[in-house]
Design a protein around this nucleic acid. Sequence first.
RNA 1: GCUCGAUUCGUCUAACGGUUAGGACGGCAGAUUCUCAUUCUGCAAAUAAGAGUUCGAUUCUCUUAUCGAGUACCA
Length: 512
Amino acid sequence: MSENRRVRVRFAPSPTGALHIGGVRTALYNYLFARRHGGDFILRIEDTDSQRFVPGAEAYIIEALKWCGIEVDEGVEQGGPHAPYRQSERKDIYLKYAMQLVESGDAYYAFDSAEALDALRKQTEQQGGTFAYNHSVRTQLDTSLRLSADEVRSRIERGDQWVIRFKMPENENVEMDDLIRGHITINTSTLDDKVLYKSADALPTYHLANIVDDHLMEISHVIRGEEWLPSLPLHYLLYRAFGWTDTQPRFAHLPLLLKPQGQGKLSKRDGDKFGFPVFPLRWVAPDGEAAMGYREEGYLPEAFINMLALLGWNPGTEQELFDMNQLIEAFSLEKVSKSGARFNPDKAKWFNSQYLRRKSDDELGQMLLPMLKAEGIDTTLQRAVRAAGMIKERATFPADLLPLTRQMFVEPEQYDEKSVAKFWKADNVTRLGELADKLAGYSAIEAATVEPEVHQWIVDRQYSMGQMMNTLRIAILGISQGPSIFEICEFIGKDDTIRRIANAIGRLGKGK
RNA sequence: GCUCGAUUCGUCUAACGGUUAGGACGGCAGAUUCUCAUUCUGCAAAUAAGAGUUCGAUUCUCUUAUCGAGUACCA
């Protein structure tokens, strides 16, 4: 394990479906670590399970990383010095390494059929035991450890299916170091002889492919989910068997993301169950089943990654809002926590509102304009920008912009019942008429001058400020909510203001 | 079952032997405001339990409990 070598990390998902947010977080931490140390971030597709391959999954992963702003240095799209980066395209290189282990005595052939093994497993369990393919059984089963070299050769030649298994040493303590968890010891007698290579599809399993590729690709740090921790001793032993311990990567196992309620790790079904996305992007499975995504729900990518970064990591300060560059600057594996983090949808929303309000009025106007157009409202970008600027503090998602500004472009067709019941009273309506007459006297409504004058006018007449203003608000917007009413009057203009008041009185009557 | 890991407010977390156990989200109350939202102020809210070690334990050790992961010719 040499120090001072170039930092190279990889994100190595399996294209078996959409990448969920736990996977995105793993990618993010890898990316932050790489950038923090001026290293490389590699995307490797681990498609060694031909059974579980899902079309579209790889494209989804790539698109999701792009949306998040996670830039890949080497990978299936951009290539690189260690191409190809898809394990199915590297299948030719793995057998050689599996053979090397057989020759060194660290691995062996096994000819047991999957069915025979299942039967054996069931049988042992019925007798109250736990079946493990290890030192206690490997010399009794159909393996190259029991069979003669000739028999092994002839079995292979006649086309029998075989696998290569790692020969796990007996009763040896493996001493491991994890960058997050510290020192871990495990005895090999609790481990079994994992399959490394299978002849059926001429493909390695995860363990072999992973170690070989990490070695070949000169990976310096493996940052992955905690579910891999139990495999770590095997991986240590594989590095040793290959004689690669001097360049063996350092490991960091990330805590898991847990469900917001209930038990267990976050799963793909939780989104529908709790009403929040578990995927970065909307995903439609080949069978047509769809799951919502953060992007489609209106989350801003910068809010999404900020939220994700803080789930299991903290900067050690009280800062909570970080853009990608600040995350890179602040990130360190030492500050990653050890225990699982329960995902909290409310906080995700809070992050989004924070980022939404940091957008310029121009950007928000650009978002709002097409929404208005889709409603049949014909207006200019300039007007949309101005309207968006007036309401951005009350929005959480871009989609909130429309309902919040709609009545700034079109007269209310209906009036909120509760607001009307509370404020639309005979006295108020009479006074609203007086106010309309006063407003008609202005050449144009400018909030800065009209507002203080109308306030004074209300005070002079000893009218109730709250009653008066809300009655006006109902006439203009149809509801007693929203930004400064005078700014809205200025926005819609004097004529429209007068007309809305008249129309409201016409429709709602003179009040009781 | 076995193996490994984890355990601070409801949630995310800070405090790496000495703090009135801090912050954020959410909740509640108040202030501001023409309303709603924002903003501001305040309040409630936690060291899983029990033994040690120590002058002193959230922090170190052990036991128990709970949670999580793994236990595939899946990753």
